[in-house]
Design a protein around this nucleic acid. Structure first.
Lengths: 318, 318
DNA sequence: TTCATAGATAGATAAATACTATCACATAAA
DNA sequence: TTTATGTGATAGTATTTATCTATCTATGAA
C-alpha cells in the first residue's frame, strides 16, 4: 500500500490546524472522513502520526519527521498543476527539432528569432542529423518535428513544404571559371566535381548533376561537411554545387572561394517541415511552417524559391 | 481536481515502457485500467501527455516536462515509506526534551551518551525552560517529554521519578564558615542567603530554607542563573544552597567558592521525567527514565539520592 | 451542573478503480 | 494476399474506496 496525496495533504492540514475538526472545516470535508483517512494512512505506514487528545491533535515525533517530505511533494504537485494551467496553447515543454547539418546552421538563425517572437513560451531543442536518420528518429519519437529535404523515404509522415533551395556553382578564385560572366553546361564537361559524404541526401543531388553534365565526381575526396568542402574547393581540388543558403552565409562574405553564375537548368533541393501524423500539435507545426515561409520570403527570396502549394508537392526534384 | 500518485506513477511507467500494454504488465494491472487512469489524468490537467500510436505511446513535449516533477514526487513518497519502515521501535523522528536550566547542563551530559547507546536511532532536541513553562509547554505539545522538578503544578501528566537532588551549602573561601568542619543550623541565623530568580522552582525551596533557619533572603540580589549566583557568592555577597549536581559540576572543580558540610536536615528537590498521558511512546519514556536512574546510581550516587518507588511519590518535598 | 467541543463510531451512499471481453487498426510474417 | 501478432480504445460489471449524516463519549469551561 501507498499513501495518497490526499492523505498527505490531510495530515499536513491537521498538523497545521491543530485539530481534526478545524482541519476538516478548512478542507471542506466532514470530520469522520478526515479521521478515516488519517487512520488508513497511519495503518498503511504502520506509524502513529498524530497524538489525539480532547484538546485537539498534535504530531508525534515520527509524524513530524514526515512533514518536510509531504511539503515538497505538495509543492511538486502544485507545480504540475501550475504548469498544466499554463499549457493553454500547447506551448509547454521543450520541442525537439531535427535539422540536416547542411541546412540548419544557415537557415535556423534566420527564423528562430521570429518563431520565439510569435511563441514566447516555446522552447526548441535543435539537433543535427542526416535526413535519413532524422526521418527514422522522427518515427521513433526522438524528435517532435524535423526539417528535412525531399524526397522523403518514410511514407505517412505529415509534411508542410517550406521552399526550394537551389544549388550554386562555386570554385576557387584562381579557377578558369572565375573569369567568365557565366558558365555554360558544356563547360562542366570533365571538370572535377566535389561532393559531400554519401550519407547526406545532398550527395544524391550532386551525383545527379555530375552525371547530367558529364563532370567527374571525385569520390575519393568527399567532404564530411560543407565547410570542409569549401576548404577543398579553395585549394583548387575541384568545383562544387553548394546549397544557396550556405553560399549566402559562408561563401559570399569571404574571399577564399567564389560563386559563379551558371547558365543552365537550376538544381534545387526541396525543404519541408515534417512530423508524425495524428499529432495533436499539427496546428502548431503548421503555424511554425508558415512563419518559416514568411521569413524566407521576406529575407531570403534572393536565394531560394518558394513553392506554396501544399498538395502533390514533388519535393523539387527535377 | 488533482492528480493521484498512482496516476503519476502510471504515466511514468508508460513513458518508460513505451507502450500501455507493456506498462500495464509491469504494473501488474489491466491495460484498460491504465488507459482510463491516463485519460483522467490528461483531462484533469487539460494537457495531452502521451502520443498514442499503433507502435506504442510516447511522451508529448508537455508530458515530458512533467517527468522531473513526477520523479521527485515518487522519490519523496518512497522516502516516506522507507522512513516508516524503519520506525519499528518508534525511534523515528526528533524528540523534544525540555529541561530546567538549573539541572539540564549538569545532568544531561552524564546520561545522554548512554541513551544514545541504548537507542542509536533516537534523536533528542533539548531546550531549557523554567519548570512552570516546561509543564505548560508539555501540555501544549511544544515538548514531547520533559525533565522537571517536583511538585508539578499541572495534574494528569504521566511521570516517572528519577532521583532527589539535595541542596548543598556554598560560601566564599574567606567566609567564616570555611573554617568550620560543619555548619550547624543555628549558624545560619541572620546570614545573607542568596537565591535564584523567582521564576525558577528552585527559588521556592531556597525560600523555605531561609524561612526555616531564620536566614535573610537577599531578594534584591537574585541570580538569573546558578552561575551568576556562584559569582555573587564569590564576591562575599552571601551564601546559598545550590543543587548538588551543579556543585559537583561547577563548584568542586574550581576554587572561587567552596561547599561546606551542613549539619542539619537535608533539603532536596525531586526530579522526574514527565509526558502527556496516553502517549503511545510512554514505554520509550519509561525506558529512558530507567536509563537515567541507572546511570545516576552508577555515577552520581555520591551526590544524589535515588528513590525507586513509582507510586505515591511525594516529589521529595519536606 | 450545563454547555460547547474534542475525536470515535456506525451505517448508507456516491465515486473511483479495477477487471474481463471485445473491437478496430497497423505492421510483419507466411 | 492472407494470417498472426501487437497496439490502444471501448463497453459493461464488480469491487473497493471515499464520503456523508447522525450519533456517541469524554473533557474542559462557565
Amino acid at each position: 500500500m501507498e499513501p495518497t496525496i490526499k492523505q498527505l495533504r490531510y495530515l499536513l492540514s491537521v498538523s497545521q490546524a491543530g485539530s481534526f475538526r478545524g482541519a476538516a472545516e478548512r478542507l471542506d470535508i466532514a470530520q469522520p472522513t478526515l479521521t478515516a483517512q488519517i487512520n488508513t494512512l497511519e495503518s498503511k505506514l504502520g506509524v502513529t502520526l498524530l497524538e489525539r487528545s480532547r484538546q485537539g491533535a498534535q504530531l508525534t515525533p515520527a509524524g513530524r519527521s514526515f512533514i518536510p517530505f509531504i511539503e515538497t511533494i505538495l509543492e511538486q504537485v502544485a507545480s504540475i498543476g501550475r504548469l498544466a494551467k499554463e499549457a493553454d496553447g500547447s506551448l509547454i515543454g521543450t520541442y525537439r527539432l531535427g535539422v540536416p547539418p547542411t541546412l540548419g546552421p544557415y537557415f535556423l538563425p534566420e527564423v528562430i528569432p521570429t518563431i520565439h517572437q510569435s511563441f514566447p513560451g516555446l522552447k526548441i531543442f535543435v539537433r543535427e542529423n542526416a535526413p535519413r536518420d532524422l526521418e527514422v528518429g522522427l518515427l521513433h519519437s526522438e524528435y517532435d518535428f524535423i526539417i528535412t529535404t525531399l524526397p522523403m523515404e518514410i511514407p505517412n509522415l505529415s509534411i508542410e513544404p517550406l521552399f526550394n533551395e537551389p544549388l550554386v556553382l562555386v570554385c576557387a578564385p584562381d579557377h578558369a571559371f572565375a573569369e567568365q560572366d557565366a558558365v555554360k553546361p558544356d563547360d562542366l564537361h570533365g571538370e572535377n566535381l566535389l561532393a559531400i559524404e554519401e550519407k547526406h541526401r545532398l550527395f544524391d543531388l550532386m551525383q545527379t548533376i555530375a552525371l547530367q553534365f558529364s563532370a567527374r565526381l571525385l569520390r575519393d575526396y568527399e567532404g564530411t561537411s560543407l565547410d570542409t568542402l569549401r576548404h577543398m574547393i579553395g585549394t583548387g581540388l575541384g568545383i562544387a554545387f553548394l546549397p544557396a543558403l550556405y553560399v549566402k552565409s559562408e561563401i559570399t562574405p569571404r574571399k577564399d572561394v567564389i560563386s559563379i553564375n551558371f547558365d543552365g537548368p537550376t538544381f534545387a533541393r526541396g525543404v519541408a517541415l515534417a512530423w508524425r501524423p495524428g499529432s495533436r500539435r499539427a496546428e502548431l507545426y503548421k503555424q511554425i511552417a508558415q512563419i518559416m515561409r514568411t521569413v524566407s520570403h521576406d529575407t531570403l527570396s534572393d536565394h531560394i524559391t518558394l513553392n506554396m502549394q501544399t498538395t502533390g508537392y514533388d519535393g523539387g526534384r527535377l
